Simulated assay, not measured.
Amino acid sequence: MASLNGKSILILATHGFEQSELEVPLAKLKEAGATVHVASPESGEIKGWDKKDWGKAVKVDKSLDETRADAYDAIVLPGGQMNPDTLRGNDKAIALIKDFFAQGKVVAAVCHAPWLLVDSGIAKGRRLTSYKTIKQDLVNAGAQWEDSEVVTDKGVVTSRNPGDLPAFVAKIIEEVNEGRHDRRAA
């Protein structure tokens, strides 16, 4: 696994995140040497959703209010149905995602989290994947949806579901090591 020594990554989530979609990237990105913080509109802890019921709580390292894109190399957006649906209604969360994108930093979303790419305006014109039930939402937003394990488009990394997490994390590491991404229109 490539090293992320000296890199900082933010995971943005709230209650109802899919347990593995936060915990696996958190563990694997730390294992690669990155400093990883969990940010949320809530303080203290946020509770995950584990397949069919509430899962474990995860410690929140930073509030959304004290989080800035310029302090990180990438943002990771876990899925689950509740988590991205709640965050897409939060103007500060959407502004933070837009800021990462505007700075050419890696924006990574798995499962239902590409909903946040729709609401932040990032989906339009991009190659993306997602959980199959939000395919039409992405297409309606102007994305080119692909049924692939992981899709990368100039530093925007998307993945379908928890089964794809190893490839998703590997692609995040690769993209962070590439550095900033030029996203000007052709």
Rank of each mutant, 00 (worst) to 15 (best):
G16V: 08
G16R: 06
F17S: 04
F17N: 03
F17P: 00
E18M: 05
E18Q: 14
Q19T: 12
Q19R: 07
Q19W: 01
Q19Y: 12
S20K: 11
S20D: 07
E21D: 07
E21K: 06
E23P: 00
V24K: 11
L26T: 01
L26G: 01
K28F: 04
K28D: 14
L29Y: 06
L29R: 06
L29Q: 06
E31D: 14
A32P: 07
G33T: 03
A34C: 13
T35A: 07
V36P: 13
V36S: 05
V36G: 11
H37V: 11
H37P: 01
V38A: 04
V38M: 05
A39N: 02
A39I: 07
S40P: 10
P41V: 11
P41R: 11
P41D: 08
E42R: 14
E42F: 13
S43A: 15
G44R: 10
E45W: 08
I46A: 12
K47L: 13
W49E: 09
W49I: 09
D50S: 15
K51D: 12
D53Y: 00
W54H: 09
G55E: 01
K56V: 12
A57V: 08
A57N: 15
V58I: 09
K59Q: 09
V60G: 04
V60W: 05
K62D: 08
E66I: 02
E66M: 03
T67I: 10
R68N: 15
R68D: 13
A69K: 10
D70P: 03
D70R: 12
Y72D: 10
D73K: 02
A74V: 09
I75L: 07
P78K: 10
G79C: 08
G80R: 05
Q81I: 12
Q81D: 08
M82T: 14
M82L: 14
N83L: 04
N83R: 09
P84S: 09
D85S: 13
T86N: 10
L87K: 08
R88E: 00
R88G: 00
D91W: 00
K92R: 13
I94L: 14
A95Y: 06
A95N: 11
L96T: 04
L96I: 12
L96G: 10
D99A: 14
D99I: 00
F101I: 00
A102C: 01
A102K: 15
Q103S: 02
Q103A: 14
K105H: 10
V106K: 06
V107M: 11
A108P: 05
V110L: 14
C111M: 05
H112I: 04
A113I: 04
P114Q: 06
L116N: 03
L117Q: 01
L117S: 02
V118T: 02
I122W: 02
I122F: 03
I122N: 05
I122Y: 02
A123S: 13
K124W: 00
K124P: 00
K124V: 00
